[in-house]
Simulated assay, not measured.
Amino acid sequence: MSFEIVHTFGFTVYFVFLLFFVWVSRFEKTSPGAGWWALAICFALLARLLLFLILPSNNTHPATFAYAFFIVLEKPFLLTGLARFLRLQIRERWFWLAAAVAELWIILAWSTDAPPLLRSIGYTIVNAGFQFYIAWLAWRHRREVPGGVLMLTAAASLALGLHWLLAPYIIALEPAWFRNGFVLGSMLVLIKYSSLLAALLLRFQQRLVDAEAKAMGMAFLDPLTGLKNKRYMETLFDHALLLATRPHQLVAVFYIDLDNFKPINDNAGHAVGDEVLKTVATRLQSHTRSTDICARVGGDEFIVIGTQLEDAEQAYDIARKLLGQLTTQIPVSGASYALGASIGISLYPKHGTSLTELIERADRAMYQVKRNGKGGYVIYDTRAPGADAA
């Protein structure tokens, strides 16, 4: 492979990654690591470009000096980007101090015309040290990014560290390996920056997934009690029926209206009323099964959807248990508050096959309890006053 092809490939790879990192850094709330990695790529690109332009003049002294000087500058930017990406509390000034020592070595060694191997030792050790430290950080924090991409970063950085340590000695023994060393180094750099770019994109994807999940939660949850809301039931009721029912089983819809809640809210204040509602929600959730759905549909109105019931008597048992919980006094800020509840029940498929029908008929059954003096439960009956034909 010719000299021109090797270095054209090298700085082309760096330029492409520069464009990617600049592009990703413009994403809203992107990790600051992207910007630091873009700067690191700039110095690596400049080092390769100068080597490409100067080396054909057969004067290797300034070419290798320029390459060594700028390739060292890449490393503190690269490591700072990794620290910022992983949000690590480490002293970044040590990166810059190590780079400054390496640069000083380069200037002194080249200005005194030291032997090639001696000139290389100082900055190759620092470059290798940076790579080993990057490998250690990436490996230590590999679980913070899904997909194992930081493991790839660690492996590529470890290989680059060994490459930096061994290359000067190999070249001293076999000068023709100079070109092969650049090819190998370019491939390892390609792997390392590819993994870092993948880490950025995976972190961005995770942020989108989390934001979507949060939005879905806000859309389907009651903000005060944390219970599901009516929109959730309307969206997922048919799916819940498919998963939660078996042949010859029933689903019961319990429409619960709290009795005596308005006086508590009016006399003790909305803050106390909110705490009472939260306790009601907790009791409903703790006394229903994981396959059941608890929802708040109004100020003091709740719906429980009980699934996989064997018969109507089991619906009565659930209503009796819920009523017992709702009539137990609720302590708030040193005081106790007594509630009651009127519970209307409708059964799927006996009283309807859609959620709208079942809620409507459970609501009518609840008002039947209200008319009879509150504090009870009843299953919807077409023969009751105000009921329609089932």
Score class of each variant (00 low, 15 high):
Phe130Trp: 03
Asp274Leu: 03
Val272His: 06
Glu360Asp: 15
Ala213Arg: 15
Gly299Cys: 08
Arg84Ser: 06
His61Tyr: 13
Glu74Arg: 08
Leu242Trp: 12
Asp274Arg: 02
Val189Asp: 12
Thr328Tyr: 11
Thr80Ala: 11
Ala240Arg: 12
Ile125Pro: 01
Ile318Arg: 04
Glu103Tyr: 04
Ala211Thr: 12
Gln368Trp: 10
Phe182Lys: 06
Val16Gly: 09
Gly373Tyr: 10
Asn180Leu: 14
Phe11Leu: 09
Phe178Cys: 01
Glu212Phe: 10
Ala281His: 05
Arg289Ile: 03
Gln205Leu: 06
Phe261Val: 11
Asn180Thr: 14
Tyr367Ile: 07
Val369Phe: 00
Ala40Thr: 02
Ala341Glu: 09
Asn265Met: 03
Phe130Val: 07
Tyr193Gly: 02
Lys370Asp: 07
Ala167Pro: 02
Thr328Phe: 08
Phe15Trp: 14
Asn260Ile: 01
Asp266Asn: 05
Ala281Asn: 08
Ile107Phe: 14
Glu74Ile: 00
Ala63Ile: 02
Ala387Asp: 04
Asp113Leu: 12
Ser157Tyr: 08
Glu234Thr: 07
Glu4Lys: 08
Lys75Gly: 02
Val72Ser: 03
Glu4Pro: 01
Tyr67Ser: 02
Met1His: 14
Asn267Thr: 13
Ile134Ala: 15
Ala63Ser: 14
Ala341Tyr: 04
Arg87Val: 14
Trp37Thr: 00
Leu355Arg: 11
Val332Pro: 08
Gly147Ile: 05
Leu97Ile: 15
Ile134Cys: 13
Ser333Lys: 14
His61Val: 13
Arg179Leu: 15
Asn180Tyr: 15
Leu200Asp: 06
Ser336Leu: 10
Asp363Ala: 07
His7Ile: 05
Ser31Asp: 09
Pro247Trp: 08
Gly344Asp: 06
Ser2Glu: 12
Phe20Leu: 10
Ser286His: 13
Arg383Lys: 14
Gln314Trp: 08
Pro349Thr: 00
Ser346Met: 08
Pro115Ile: 03
Ala315Gln: 10
His248Cys: 04
Pro223Cys: 07
Lys214Gln: 15
Ala319Pro: 00
Gly334Ser: 02
Ala390Arg: 15
His287Leu: 04
Lys350Gln: 15
Ser31Ile: 07
Val369His: 01
Asp266Thr: 07
Leu55Ala: 12
Leu88Phe: 01
Ile264Ala: 01
Asp311Cys: 10
Ala138Thr: 04
Leu165Asp: 02
